[in-house]
Design a binder for these strands. Structure first.
Lengths: 135, 135
DNA sequence: ATTTGTAGTTGCAAAATGCAAGTGCAAATT
DNA sequence: AATTTGCACTTGCATTTTGCAACTACAAAT
């Protein structure tokens, strides 16, 4: 059970989701409204099925996501964010902001640049919306 | 050369430093004033020498760090942050903040909790200090 | 000429990842 | 009632990355 490499808070965060996939699943739930295994598989980055299952299980164990039977379809599962998961939003915003600043200079990214210029407001707006569906 | 899994800015950031070690090196430069290979090796998380060499090389290629001969010792190298590297500060702060919120409830973390309560101010202060030594 | 300090590289075993195919099970279809 | 479909995985296997220990290179100090 000793999974922490040190007691540094940065290191502890990375111990949980310091990989190329975990935060993309969170992004999908948070920003794209995805809720199911099948939906996560359709993202552009093409996560492998075993890796997805593994990460969902980790995120569930860490109480970042909760897995429940779909209310509309009894043979389907839906994943949703806990408050702990919703609180990852500022991290995602900063990751995106940095990338936009240094890598995106195309027309297509003008929207995201405007968002990034009003970061505090954007954060608050999204955060409020997330509140309505945290478990 | 096609290292980007998608054009999502979150994904692009993770393509570069989405692993358990890269951001710890940045933390060491940024928060602990470490500058050399030998100093990075002494951190609590115990990075392996080959991984450290590999990550330093990636961070240098991405122009997040610059490597120069030490002005005081001609047979030593020093690494320093570029502006692009210094701009990773908000990401580190949010990673730490999240971890502090959900994992640290001991006396020892009272300091970091106070910092996290004055995040904007802390960010500005550290950021100003970093400006003096970006390359 | 030898030792020390610094920054790596190399070899190899173990773990994580990627990919394709297969499984289990409930619901819908025939 | 039997078969097919949809969904959520699991499994097997090859490739890649990581971790660990030992070794190398080279300049400076002794």
């Amino acid at each position: 059970m000793d999974k922490n490499r040190s007691d540094c808070p940065v290191s502890c965060s990375l111990d949980i989701f310091g990989d190329k996939w975990s935060l993309l699943i969170i992004r999908d739930v948070m920003m794209k409204g995805k809720v199911s295994y099948g939906e996560f598989l359709t993202s552009d980055e093409k996560i492998a099925t075993n890796i997805l299952a593994n990460r969902l299980s980790t995120l569930e164990n860490e109480k970042i996501l909760v897995k429940e039977v779909s209310p509309t379809n009894k043979s389907k599962f839906v994943y949703s964010l806990t408050q702990k998961g919703a609180d990852l939003l500022p991290i995602l915003v900063e990751l995106a902001d940095w990338s936009i600043k240094y890598y995106e200079n195309t027309k297509a990214s003008e929207l995201s640049k405007r968002i990034s210029g009003r970061k505090a407001k954007f954060l608050q707006e999204v955060s409020e919306k997330l509140q309505e569906r945290v478990k």
